[in-house]
């Protein structure tokens, strides 16, 4: 019988059977990485807007509180996008000739709202409520990043489920006092600067444990599926 395969085929056969496991693993790893990458999640990507609104200027430069524009953040699921009237509260008098504000003036004159492009977009099968997070001491910057350093708005976090769960599993690592929720520059307490008002906490973990108790964060429930998928 003539020989069909070269003897090296043995090695190749062995290697390829073994190798397929690695190949499959590699494919899965690449797919997983792509899935988590900013390419898919849009993390860190600046969205184009009809007006190049700068949070850096308005928050850091002028010291305007988040709630001046995002009025419903404490009481509703949605933080609230300001109506054009809010922009015009100041811009009816300052920067009235600025070309970049033309769409704002147009909107005010015609009553047609500005069409901002949503930066933080969750899939519709996720229920998210801003007000409860504010009430339990999740800082704006914890999820949105240091918005006061963003000349144009981008998405700070991946907004993927494993990112949500990091905090839902261990809220102690992230909570801050309610009074500091809107503070963009809050720092957790340290042994040198303990938080006297909250159990003399000397670290984020100590403070977090105190606040979980104080604010009644129900750790045993907030990882239930139906909390977010209802």
């Amino acid at each position: 019988m003539p020989q069909i395969f070269h003897s090296s085929a043995n090695t190749i056969a062995k290697a390829s059977i073994f190798g397929v496991v690695f190949l499959v693993g590699a494919i899965a790893w690449v797919a997983g990485s792509v899935q988590r990458s900013p390419y898919v999640t849009g993390q860190g990507e600046v969205r184009d807007q009809p007006v190049p609104f700068s949070h850096e200027h308005h928050v850091r430069g002028l010291g305007i509180d988040c709630r001046y524009c995002h009025t419903s953040v404490e009481s509703s699921s949605f933080a609230g996008l300001p109506p054009t009237q809010t922009c015009m509260t100041c811009h009816s008098q300052i920067w009235t000739n600025a070309q970049i504000l033309e769409p704002v003036r147009q909107s005010f004159a015609t009553g047609k709202p500005l069409r901002w492009n949503r930066v933080h977009n969750l899939p519709n099968f996720v229920y998210f409520n801003h007000s409860i997070h504010i009430a339990k001491g999740v800082g704006c910057a914890t999820c949105h990043g240091q918005v006061d350093r963003m000349p144009l708005m981008w998405q700070h976090a991946s907004l993927q489920m494993n990112w949500c769960l990091q905090c839902h599993r261990d809220p102690e690592k992230f909570l801050r006092p309610r009074s500091e929720v809107f503070n963009m520059n809050w720092q957790p307490p340290t042994p040198e600067h303990p938080d006297v008002a909250h159990g003399n906490a000397t670290s984020q973990l100590e403070l977090g444990k105190y606040l979980v108790k104080e604010y009644g964060v129900r750790k045993d429930q907030i990882t239930n599926c139906s909390v977010c998928h209802r």
């Binding site: 059977i17 397929v20 499959v24 693993g25 899965a28 797919a31």
Partner: peptide, 13 residues
Amino acid sequence: LGGAAVALSLALV
């Protein structure tokens, strides 16, 4: 096992 891994990873993706 190899076949199962292929199927599994495909399903996963």
